[in-house]
Amino acid sequence: MASNPFDQQQAIPGVKKIIAVASGKGGVGKSTVSTNLALALREYGQVGLLDADIYGPSLPRMMGTLNQKPVLSEGNKITPVTRYNIKTMSIGYMVDENAAVVWRGPMLFKAMDQFFRDVQWGDLDYLVIDLPPGTGDVQLSLVQKVPVAAAVIVTTPQNISLIDAKKAIDMFERTGVRIAGIVENMAYMINPANNEKMQLFPKGELSSYLEAKQLNKIGEVPFNPSVSLGSEAGIPIVESNPDGAEALAFKDIAKKIHAL
């Protein structure tokens, strides 16, 4: 009888809860949500942030740690790069930003294992993992190797994004991972003239889908150019403007995740 691959899960020493951030689709702001969620979770303890997007790592730029290199300690353990009091790790620290990572599945599995076992994460209350788009090797490696406390699914309002978010939800449900809830990114824009909410995208079927699936929307993050500008500059909005509407939305999401 074949063994169950999920029986091989091993906790990362010192890490209390792993929170996976997924979307199923690129371009919806998943990495922005991951970085700002990690920053917001600092209120509840020590936080780590792992960029699991091997082919398109963006954490070094978003966290302002471009060109930094992790150091090897005794026993060939990797010391994560710390920024904003968050321990971070990314393949982007080890390859040039313009270089393509041309790896097959087994190499991805090995890289993920090294991120979990060979990095000195220390004692963390939360390890936020920014997953790549899709439902492929990296996602499968994650759920097979470590126990994930909860998954956060990121989507934008329109159905073209929801289609792929549904696939990410289905994957986590099939692998027994709890869905913390859905984050609707770029949900609206605040009109600076009158502070009214404006819809940038057509509202899709997210609300009816969540009701049918009995899932929660745990956050609506408004669109603001300053959010992407902050990511480009390496100063996420929770750090650069902690009292703004966008940062408060991320803080509310973090509060709900902490309450799980």
Rank of each mutant, 00 (worst) to 15 (best):
Q114P: 00
K255C: 06
G92K: 01
I18T: 11
P225Q: 11
K69C: 08
L206N: 06
I160Y: 13
A249D: 06
L59D: 10
N241I: 05
G219E: 09
L66F: 03
E43Q: 05
T35V: 12
K256W: 02
V95M: 09
L229P: 03
V101K: 05
Y126C: 10
Q214E: 15
Q139T: 04
V81C: 06
L162M: 10
D125Q: 13
L124H: 08
P13H: 07
P106M: 07
Y188W: 15
G122V: 03
Q144K: 02
S228H: 07
S231Y: 08
Q144N: 10
V146S: 10
Y93G: 12
E239T: 03
V128T: 04
A249Y: 11
R61H: 06
T175G: 09
K87V: 02
I12P: 15
P60L: 05
I169C: 15
T35Y: 01
I179V: 12
V33C: 09
L59M: 13
E173H: 15
A22L: 07
A40Y: 04
A100F: 04
V21L: 10
N185Y: 14
K251W: 13
L50M: 15
F109E: 03
I163C: 00
A254C: 00
L206D: 03
I129L: 14
G48E: 02
S90L: 09
M1T: 10
V154T: 15
Q9T: 02
V238R: 01
I182P: 05
L200E: 04
K69Q: 13
F201T: 02
A150G: 15
M89N: 10
P106Y: 07
S240D: 04
S3K: 02
F250V: 03
K16W: 12
K197D: 09
A100L: 02
E43W: 00
V21D: 06
I179G: 10
S31H: 08
Y55K: 12
K30V: 11
A249I: 08
V221L: 13
G204W: 09
T175R: 01
V71M: 14
K145G: 13
